[in-house]
Design a protein around this nucleic acid. Structure first.
Lengths: 144, 144
DNA sequence: ATTTGATCATTGATATATCAATTATATGAA
DNA sequence: TTCATATAATTGATATATCAATGATCAAAT
C-alpha cells in the first residue's frame, strides 16, 4: 500500500507539472497579446527550425499524432502563421512553411519562451535537470 | 542556445512520459475488456477511497477543473459506475458514490493498476523515485 | 505490368482540458 | 434583515488527444 501510494503520487505530479507548465506558458502568451496556444508555438518553432517540414515529420518530432497535427496546422493556416505547399516529388505529402507573419511571430516570441522555460527549472542545477531527464527517459522506456 | 535546448528537451520528455503512460494504461484496460478510460479510473479510485465525495472536492484532489469533472462523471453515470446524490445540508453540492458495479470494477481493476504503475518505475530505486517527485514538485512550485 | 504492402493527410467519433459565463445556493458583512 | 461576496455545478466555446477508417500515392514484390 505504501508503494502504491508512492507511484500514485508520482503519476499525479507528472500530470500536474504538465498542466501548470501549460497554464503558465499560456498565461504569459495571453498577457503579451499573442494569439497562439502553447501547442501552436511548438509547431511554429519546429517549422522555424527546419524551414520546411512535412506533417508526418512534424508529428514524429513533436510526438503528436497526425490527426492532431492536421488540426493544429489547420488553425495556424487560418491564422496565417503557416502555409501548406504542394510537393511534386511525393504527392502524398504536404510541405509546411512559415509565412512572413509566422516568422515574425517566432522571432518576437522566442526570447520570452526561453525565459518561460527557465522559470520552470529555477533553482535546479544542470546536474539535477540532467537527472530529471534521465529518470523520465527511463520511465518512457519502461512504458513504450 | 545550449541551455535552451536542455530545457526544451525536458519539457518534451514531460509531455512524452504522460502520453506513453496514458497509452500504456489504456492498452492494458482495453486488453482486459474494461470499458473505462484512465481518467475515469482515477475518478473511480478517488470515490472508492473516500466513499462519498463532492465534485469540487474530487476536482481539487485530482487537479482537474470542475467542467472536466462534470463531463467525466456524466460518462461514468451513463456507464452505471457512479451515482449522484442530493445533499440536503448544501443544495449547491452533489455527492458522488460508487454503484455496486463501480465498486466491483474498482476491486477487479486495482491489482492491475498497481502493476501498471510499477511498470513505469521498473529499475528506479525508491531513492530515485523520491528524487523524481522532489524535482517535479520544485518545478510545480516554480510555475504555480 | 500488376499486385501487394506501406505511407501520408484527412475525417469521424469520442474523450478530456480550459476559460468564461450562468444560475442557484450559502456565507459574511453592514 | 438586506446586500455583497463566495461557492458549486453546469453549459458553451474552443483546443487538443487518440484510435479507426479512408482515399490517394508511393515502393516493393511478383
Amino acid at each position: 500500500m505504501k508503494d502504491e501510494k508512492l507511484e500514485g503520487i508520482l503519476y499525479y505530479l507528472l500530470e500536474k507539472v504538465n498542466k501548470v507548465s501549460r497554464r503558465y506558458s499560456q498565461k504569459v502568451f495571453d498577457e503579451q497579446g499573442w494569439d497562439i496556444t502553447k501547442d501552436q508555438w511548438l509547431v511554429l518553432k519546429k517549422i522555424a527550425d527546419n524551414h520546411r517540414i512535412s506533417q508526418v515529420e512534424l508529428a514524429r518530432a513533436l510526438f503528436k499524432d497526425t490527426a492532431a497535427i492536421t488540426r493544429i496546422i489547420n488553425l495556424m493556416v487560418d491564422k496565417k502563421l503557416v502555409k501548406r505547399e504542394f510537393r511534386p516529388d511525393d504527392k502524398r505529402q504536404v510541405e509546411l512553411l512559415l509565412t512572413n507573419k509566422g516568422q515574425k511571430m517566432f522571432d518576437v516570441m522566442l526570447p520570452t519562451v526561453v525565459e518561460i522555460r527557465k522559470k520552470g527549472v529555477e533553482g535546479l542545477s544542470t546536474i539535477e535537470t540532467e537527472q530529471l531527464k534521465s529518470l523520465l527517459s527511463r520511465m518512457i522506456q519502461n512504458l513504450e
